[in-house]
């Protein structure tokens, strides 16, 4: 059978879509419709929101209150402190745990699987669930928040960094072992130097992530600026909340600029 060549105006036939793709699309549409019904999706909400008299409470921003040191600045500093200490703790612990969770450097199979399972469970619990759990365990305040974020950032960091260790060059490790090195010194001299730059870069990420996360910890009683937002929400002081939001906004923006600049210099 010969294909008619050079016939003007004839388009190539369009390939038919695969069955899996069609089924996947249908499933996605059905699930979307069902979910929309389950969450009471209503377009009228937008009209309600637009005409809601509550918006007037957002303006004008009560700057006198917001810029008072004890109201916003001190809790914001506490937020940074939670973010920094939990990043330091999380990332320091992540270094040995990541080596235990990489196929390349795990001392044995058992350690590898146990670490991996535990870390997967820890990571599957959302950060604010940890915060609420620890608030219940050790009491309301920044201490619980710092601890919750340490746990969560440990899990995130281990996930990221252990994959980096997985993809490290195995040859220096083999060389160290062939020269008679024991396991830990071999890892320290054969693998650590090659993955350390990635470790630093990921640590910066985790720091940024933690500071962002610590902004909302206070909503569940775990300290920081979120506590102030929660209190003002209870009092319907939305003008103050908007002021706090403007400050958070500026903080996150500056943080991101610093982080991007640092990372560009490092990577």
């Amino acid at each position: 059978m010969t294909q008619p060549v050079g016939e003007v105006g004839q388009r190539p036939t369009k390939p038919r879509p695969k069955l899996t793709v069609v089924l996947g699309l249908v499933a996605a549409v059905v699930f979307t419709l069902y979910s929309a019904q389950q969450v009471d999706m209503r377009v009228s909400t937008f009209v309600d929101m637009w005409t809601n008299p509550l918006w007037e409470k957002f303006w004008p921003i009560e700057w006198d209150w917001v810029l008072d040191r004890s109201h916003v600045i001190d809790p914001l500093i506490e937020t940074f402190q939670i973010g920094i200490i939990s990043a330091v703790i999380g990332c320091s612990l992540a270094l040995p745990v990541s080596f235990a969770m990489s196929r390349l450097t795990a001392p044995n199979r058992g350690v590898y699987y146990v670490t991996k399972a535990v870390m997967n469970v820890v990571r599957a619990v959302p950060d604010l669930f940890w915060a609420k759990l620890l608030v219940t365990a050790v009491g309301v305040g920044a201490f619980a928040g710092a601890w919750a974020l340490s746990i969560f950032s440990l899990a995130v960091m281990v996930k990221l960094f252990s994959e980096e260790v997985d993809s490290a060059d195995p040859r220096p490790l083999e060389a160290a072992k062939a020269a008679g090195g024991r396991h830990l010194p071999s890892v320290a001299t054969g693998v650590l130097p090659t993955v350390f730059p990635a470790y630093v870069a990921y640590s910066l990420y985790v720091l940024e992530l933690n500071i962002r996360a610590s902004l909302v910890l206070g909503l569940v009683g775990a300290g920081g600026i979120g506590r102030v937002i929660e209190a003002q929400r209870g009092a319907f002081q939305f003008d103050r909340i908007l002021g706090i939001l403007v400050i958070i906004f500026a903080v996150v923006f500056i943080l991101e600029q610093i982080s991007v600049a640092l990372r560009r210099r490092l990577v």
């Binding site: 909400t45 309600d48 929101m49 809601n52 509550l54 918006w55 604010l128 962002r212 902004l215 909302v216 909503l219 979120g226 937002i229 929400r233 319907f236 939305f238 909340i241 939001l245 958070i248 906004f249 996150v252 923006f253 991101e256």
Partner: peptide, 17 residues
């Protein structure tokens, strides 16, 4: 949009709706 945590967005929407 990314600078505002979604919990805070939710809080404001919840207050209104």
């Amino acid at each position: 949009i990314r600078a505002v945590p979604e919990l805070i967005v939710a809080m404001i929407i919840l207050a209104v709706t």
